[in-house]
Structures are given as C-alpha cells and as structure tokens.
Design a binder for these strands. Structure first.
Lengths: 146, 146
DNA sequence: TTAAGTGCAAAATCTTTGCAAATGT
DNA sequence: ACATTTGCAAAGATTTTGCACTTAA
C-alpha cells in the first residue's frame, strides 16, 4: 500500500495520531469501494485487535469527518470514506449508496447525486439518505440466474 | 379502536392467526404515523409481553408483507405498515421516510414519491430507500431554537 | 387435531463505558 | 510531559435459537 503517506496526512490533518491500528483501518477503507462495519473491519484486520478500539476509532473518524455513515443494513452501521464532495462539518452526504442483497456490501455511488424532493413545512430537513439495493456487479457475474 | 375487524382481516388475509398480541401490535402500527422498533412496541404494549414474541411477530409480518422495514437509524430496525402502494411481494416501497433527529421517530411520507436515478448497468436495482432526517413538526414546536 | 404462536432460558452479537497502561507528538 | 489511544473487563441492548406449552382455526 503506497497510500501510507496519504493516510498519515489524513490523520494528522484532523489532529489524530498515526497509530498502527488507525493506519490499518483507513487502509482498509481505501482498499474497498464499499462501506465497512465495525465487524467487517475486525475480521479483515491482520493483527488481532480489540473491537472496542475499532468502535472508538470509527467514532473518532466520524467526528473528524474522515468517515461517514453510509448505511445501516440489517445489523450494524457501516462507514465509508468521505469523498471530496463532503462539505466539512455539514455532512449532507449528497451521494447515493448501493447495498448488494447477495453479498451485503455497500457501495458509495459518489457520482450519483441525490435528487431533491420538497416536503411539507412540518418537517425541517437536515440530511438526506438515498440507498438503492439489488445485485452488484460481482454477484451478477457469479449468478447465472438473474 | 374500531379497526379491530380491519386488523383481524389483515391477519387472516395473510394466513396468520388473530392472537391478542398480534392484534395489539398491528393496532399500535395503525395508531402511529411513524415507524416502530421492537423495543418501541414492547414499551407500548399494555399487557407485558415477551420480546421474543414481538421479534417473531415482526418477522412474520414482514414476510407476509404486512410490514416493511422503514428505517434503521442508529440502533434497531423500525417497521411500518405497508400502504396500498406496496405491491405485494415486490416490496419496492416507493415512498420516502423521515426520521426526526430529536425524538427519533420515523414517519412514512406516503405521498412523497421517490425520485428515480439511473445507475450504471453494473448494478441491478431491486429496491430504493429514500430517507430524510431533521426535525419533525412536534419537536419544532417544542424547540424555540431552530 | 394440529400447525401456528407463545414464553422461558440461554446464547450470540453489537455497542458503550470506566479505568489503568501504553503510545504518539 | 501530555493528551490521545489502547486493552481489558464488564455491562447494556438487540436479536436469534431451542424446546415445551398453549391456542386459534
């Protein structure tokens, strides 16, 4: 992974320490184009780590704006890297997500803008979440049946 | 609640038994215009009931198409009644949901159609979930600050 | 009668909190 | 040095499973 410097910079830029665990965690997010849950991460980490540490790192990353909650499918919240579109604090993550029903992976569709709707003034809208689900490219090719 | 017959019919129509618990559960869903989690239901049930029974009834209702998963905010999946728009098995719940960040209640915006987007053909879309969040009418009136 | 639903006990997850020790800057 | 991060232990919450008992149809 040549992104090591990038990851380090990302951490420092947010006032976080470059510890092995956090470096590895962010590496995982960079290596996957879909969202990861705490459990996903623990499972993928080479060096065995404590779940608690992962939870706290995720919270920390979310607070710092490095990650955002991409989806909460079935059990467990999933996180994804904030792209360039993420406007600092105001986390109106204006892109859609796709969850594969087969492999349960969550993809960030960074290029798909969330269409707007107008709501009755009974509601004050702060955030929008647009999540599609179905079959992803990988599972489609494996599955002869549609 | 005069909907008793309605609820009973709903259960029979799906080949389910009209037990007191299930009747009461569906009554709760009819009495609220927002989604309920298993915990919400247990808390609201007059007669004290087992969580397990509630979980199993919810699964049963979801399978039958009486309820659908409306949102999964933070912890716990929430369910809502399927409206007339719900096309039987193919649960493309084409209406938006609103989650209040203050009281955590989930509203089904049955009248808000989900806008379509086109995805690359890498993805086969089966379902769409469009969830807005912010402050609901009740919390807005209580909160002088916006 | 008999399949569906219930209740209790128990376990598997997921997540949070507190505190002492270790680590990065 | 000092605030951050970690690890362990422990607890709370959510959800699932197994089995015997009850109940609606």
């Amino acid at each position: 992974m040549e992104d090591k410097r990038l990851i380090g910079d990302l951490l420092s830029a947010h006032g976080l320490k470059k510890t092995p665990i956090r470096m590895e965690m962010l590496g995982l997010f960079m290596d996957h184009d879909f969202a990861l849950s705490a459990s996903d991460i623990v499972a993928k980490m080479t060096s065995k780590r404590d779940r608690v540490t992962v939870y706290r790192a995720l919270s920390s990353f979310e607070e710092s704006g490095i990650l955002h909650r991409a989806s909460e499918d079935g059990q467990g919240v999933k996180y994804a890297l904030c792209g360039k579109n993420c406007p600092g604090e105001a986390h109106t993550h204006q892109h859609a997500h796709f969850i594969c029903e087969e492999c349960n992976q969550t993809y960030c569709l960074d290029d798909v803008k969330i269409p707007e709707v107008k709501l009755s003034d009974e509601f004050l809208v702060n955030r929008v979440n647009y999540t599609l689900s179905g079959i992803c490219k990988d599972c489609k090719s494996l599955d002869p049946v549609a």
